[in-house]
Nucleic acid binder design. Structure first.
Lengths: 160, 160
DNA sequence: TATATGAGTTTTGGAAATGGACTAATAGAG
DNA sequence: CTCTATTAGTCCATTTCCAAAACTCATATA
């Protein structure tokens, strides 16, 4: 399967990964959440080739994850800022950080600490059930196809 | 920066992505959480080249995310099953699903529904603070370097 | 006029992915 | 005891992707 076809799959993981599932994009987003906005600042931090950075930033703008906001004219220069859709990726980054902290922190000390301003504590990110607020374990989840989804209906019609 | 060097960076996102941040690995893991275990079943579902699948499965085994468990001898054939470390990636997958469901579900109907057995409800995955159990918003998080981490100490020594 | 800054584009050799053919070990059918 | 199917690979030619470095362009500053 080609990368461009991935987004056409009827799976939320596949569609999401067609947006940010490549080598660099999640690192760009990590930097965005840390406040990095400008081309050369991404360059300095990520040490990737300019070509790829240009490409990835443009794709993120196309997908409405980042937006270009001019910060000067003559010549026009842009900040790359997270959109609402981009900020919605925060849980993904936090979940990845959590896993890395758990399995790769030397001496149990993660490289970076995060404080939750609301409660004032250093925190870990926990994924919980929207209905009962309990942490979700893999074995507690059952999966089924949504018969109300347009994709399912199209498929059912084809077979009939 | 080369892909192999990524894991050496002092960042939990970078180290995590050096394990699963490529085109196919997260899709393999999605399938693992759906119960797929065998080489050809991954093949059928993912439609990727056998070479790449071999490579990615081996890497996941090396990183202790999957483990090979023989299900027959003569010839020996293996199931690829999630380890504890692999199961710990469940929140990452759920966070990705959540984002895809939010922004790419047609008519607001996601392709797949998940039920939490514990409470019996279809659920969404929410990322909350381990200390106050409130959902975490990007603007409520402050980040700082952990001065107790071995990596920080090594760096401080170098400069002194 | 020369140099610096910011944000790219172009070029080119090398690395990785793709798709298809080939291999191996064994079981079961005829 | 040969033929075919199953499972899990390996090998290889072609295409695509990526890194690094050089080049471009618009402007500001010395």
């Amino acid at each position: 399967m080609r990368w461009e076809q991935l987004g056409e799959q009827n799976c939320s993981v596949a569609r999401s990964l067609s947006v940010f599932g490549d080598r660099w994009t999640l690192l760009i987003l990590r930097d965005s959440f840390l406040g990095i906005k400008r081309f050369d600042d991404f360059m300095d931090d990520l040490k990737l080739s300019r070509t790829i950075l240009t490409d990835r930033l443009n794709k993120l703008v196309e997908h409405d994850v980042l937006i270009k906001v001019p910060y000067q004219t003559k010549p026009t220069r842009y900040d790359y800022k997270l959109t609402e859709k981009g900020r919605a990726l925060h849980p993904v980054i936090l979940a990845i950080v959590q896993w890395g902290d758990t399995f790769y922190a030397e001496d149990g000390e993660p490289p970076v600490l995060r404080t939750h301003k609301k409660c004032g504590h250093d925190f870990q990110a926990i994924v919980v059930c929207s209905e009962c607020s309990e942490p979700i374990k893999p074995q507690d989840v059952t999966v089924r196809v949504n018969r109300n989804s347009p994709a399912y209906k199209r498929n059912a019609l084809q077979k009939a």
